[in-house]
């Protein structure tokens, strides 16, 4: 087994005059629960899109379990599950049909797909909603069904862009349990998030990215260096305002 589940080598992307991702290199060890944190517009989604084959980088490469995703996309995608952010689903399908579709597209057997679909619907608390059209799902339910489509082929690496956004606390806890279980049996997870607290509790490793540049990477303890991750993050990223702000907001 390859010791590095996701090897990002000097990825760069520029949109017009704006450098979205500036030569980011990042090694995600196999079996780690990796957090990717950064302010809004830091380039997290752009970087993950390039690492998962959705956006062609200007320079650099990304190796998924040792296979270059831009040189051999089909082979690399076989061991990769992705929850992309801000992407629609085929929402005229029911939840059950959508998960089935995702399995069949990957060339899996019908019986295997059917069994895993029911399992996934059950653990996502969607068993009773499996026959509803995805277009009628709430934001949190859509997130969960998308997660299910990313997991049906039991990938070795899961890349999840904002997986907990809009998900209720109970479902989020269930999803965390599933992911922890997955990691403890050798899987690798990368999550991007804004919630430092969550990343600190959940992840083994973390990378901080701001304005397209990698500010820090390593185990959570290494990166936070005795402080809380949130404090360390603010130090790294900067941009905290002074506390003078809005005196008129004090209502009393």
């Amino acid at each position: 087994m390859n010791p590095i589940a996701l090897d990002i080598r000097a990825l760069a992307k520029q949109f017009g005059a704006k450098v979205a991702v500036n030569n980011v290199s990042l090694q995600v060890p196999a079996g780690s629960f990796y957090g990717l944190v950064g302010p809004n517009g830091a380039g997290k989604t752009t970087m993950l899109s390039m690492a998962t084959g959705l956006l062609r980088p200007d320079a650099g490469s990304a190796l998924v379990n040792g296979i270059d995703i831009w040189a051999e996309p089909q082979a690399a995608k076989r061991t990769l599950g992705v929850l992309a952010d801000g992407v629609r689903q085929f929402d005229r399908l029911t939840g059950r049909q959508l998960v089935t579709y995702s399995g069949l597209l990957r060339g899996m057997e019908r019986e295997e797909v059917a069994r895993r679909t029911e399992d996934l619907l059950r653990v996502m608390d969607l068993a009773s909603d499996g026959d509803k059209l995805v277009v009628d799902y709430s934001a949190g339910m859509t997130k969960k069904i998308s997660l299910a489509t990313a997991m049906i082929h039991s990938p070795k690496l899961l890349v999840l862009d904002e997986p907990f956004e809009a998900v209720d606390p109970v479902s989020a806890a269930n999803i965390r349990d599933i992911l922890n279980d997955y990691v403890s049996f050798g899987g690798t997870v990368i999550v991007s998030s804004h919630v430092m607290d969550l990343v600190q509790r959940m992840c083994t490793h973390v990378a901080v990215i701001a304005a397209g540049v990698l500010k820090a990477q390593g185990t959570v303890d290494e990166v936070r260096g005795g402080k809380s991750l949130e404090e360390r993050f603010v130090d790294l990223v900067g941009g905290r305002g002074t506390n003078e702000g809005l005196s008129w907001l004090h209502t009393s």
Binding site: R78, L80, F90
Partner: peptide
């Protein structure tokens, strides 16, 4: 017509 739902086709690496 697929719009961004097309991402699923890209991500699954269907031929």
């Amino acid at each position: 017509y697929d719009n961004t739902a097309f991402a699923l086709h890209v991500l699954t690496g269907i031929s």
